[in-house]
């Protein structure tokens, strides 16, 4: 497992990855197991309130909380899943370069025949794989729950919605990685990436509430994650391509800024 920077990065987070997987699986499963009590209680829909109720900023623009799609979107996919993926991704991304630099191990790592770009790309790849692994676990756990409560929903659509969330996580992980690589400061990276994610979340989520946000919501990565409702309609390839494309645009920025600066001792 210690053959290269990529494998070593996964190896060293094996324990935390296990805990994340357990936590995410448990949360997903428990949420899905609640479905029967929603299904039989249409009065839950009263919580939604009007079309422009603030509640919609946290559950999405849904019409029926008791349908399988409405339930999973509002309880899992709109807020919870992206939130958890983002927390994980931002922690990993910010730590990838800046964490190593702040601990003081980057000098030792770079005294090996590796370029800075190689180190960054290996760390990025490890982050992507970790996020996809968590997405897989989350999906499996949701599938188990759906089978248990006999929910009428496509496993494939669930996979597509989960993948969309993973792509969003990877994008914000790349933001954090770029910031950490450019500044060498983990706190800066976490702070800025978190602020951007909260701001862009509300930019998209408040669209049903605040009309003025309507044209701006397309500036939010969350729009490309969920607006096309991948759980109902399948992955919107164009929207997914925007998420992937933004990530791929960030990489050269990360490589360039990390390559040209002085590393801290």
């Amino acid at each position: 497992m210690l053959r290269n920077v990529f494998l070593k990065s996964l190896w060293e987070q094996r324990r935390s990855l296990l805990w994340w997987a357990l936590g995410l699986a448990a949360l997903t499963l428990l949420t899905v197991l609640f479905y029967p009590s929603f299904r039989d209680a249409p009065e839950f829909n009263d919580f939604l309130g009007d079309e422009d109720s603030l509640v919609r900023a946290f559950v999405g623009d849904v019409s029926d909380l008791t349908s399988p799609e409405g339930f999973l979107n509002s309880q899992l996919y709109f807020l919870m899943v992206p939130l958890l993926f983002l927390v994980f991704a931002i922690a990993r991304g910010s730590g990838a370069i800046a964490g190593e630099e702040e601990r003081g191990t980057l000098d030792l790592l770079l005294s090996n025949p590796l370029s800075r770009s190689q180190v960054l790309l290996h760390k990025f790849a490890a982050m992507v794989v970790a996020i996809l692994a968590l997405a897989l676990i989350m999906w499996l756990s949701a599938v188990i729950g759906v089978i248990v409560v006999d929910m009428d929903i496509s496993f494939m659509r669930m996979a597509e919605a989960t993948l969309s969330a993973a792509l969003l996580g990877i994008l914000f992980g790349a933001v954090a990685l770029t910031l950490g690589g450019a500044t060498g400061k983990r706190a800066t990276s976490i702070g800025v990436a978190s602020a951007v994610s909260v701001a862009t979340y509300f930019l998209n989520a408040l669209t049903p509430v605040v009309d003025a946000f309507e044209p701006l919501s397309k500036l939010s990565p969350f729009y490309y994650y969920i607006d096309a409702d991948p759980l109902t309609n399948g992955l919107n390839l164009l929207h997914a391509a925007v998420l992937v494309g933004l990530t791929l645009l960030l990489l050269p920025v990360a490589l360039f800024t990390f390559e040209r600066r002085d590393l801290a001792v």
């Binding site: 003081g104 030792l108 005294s111 025949p113 001792v265």
Partner: peptide, 27 residues
């Protein structure tokens, strides 16, 4: 060129043999 940094900071969760194995692979 190989290098011994001044403030010897190593991957402190690894054991010595894991560290040497990692660095040997990288080299």
């Amino acid at each position: 060129v190989d290098y011994l940094p001044g403030d010897m900071v190593l991957y402190d969760k690894m054991t010595g043999s894991q560290l040497l194995s990692y660095l040997a692979h990288l080299r």
